[in-house]
């Protein structure tokens, strides 16, 4: 198990983070990453990727879109109106 290379570390990273790897495999990956500057850098950027995309795409509902939705549902359903 000491034969972990960067490529297998990358392949197993998601399973590692989700906790579905065996303890033995986890330990082997931990050992590799601890001694591999490149993998440490890779893991850092891999882990930050979801947050960066999440923050960059956090749209808020514009008032006119909300109003259009209400109007649309008023014409197609019995909700939003008639009172």
């Amino acid at each position: 198990m000491s034969e972990v290379r960067c490529v297998s570390g990358v392949e197993l990273l998601m399973d590692y983070l989700e906790g579905v790897l065996s303890a033995e495999m986890r330990a082997a990956l931990d050992e590799h990453v601890a001694g591999c500057e490149k993998c440490a850098a890779f893991v850092a950027s891999y882990c930050e990727t979801p947050r960066i995309l999440r923050d960059a795409t956090a749209s808020t509902l514009p008032a006119d879109v909300e109003a259009s939705l209400k109007n649309f549902l008023r014409t197609r359903t019995t909700a939003f109106g008639r009172n």
């Binding site: 290379r5 490529v7 500057e37 850098a41 950027s45 930050e48 990727t49 960066i52």
Partner: peptide, 23 residues
């Protein structure tokens, strides 16, 4: 990601890390 024929990362640590600082 790209790897060399030894299965090791082909890029440098700085190149591998930089995506984390995109924001």
């Amino acid at each position: 990601p790209r790897f060399d024929d030894q299965g090791m990362h082909a890029a440098t640590p700085a190149e591998l890390q930089v995506a984390a600082r995109a924001d």
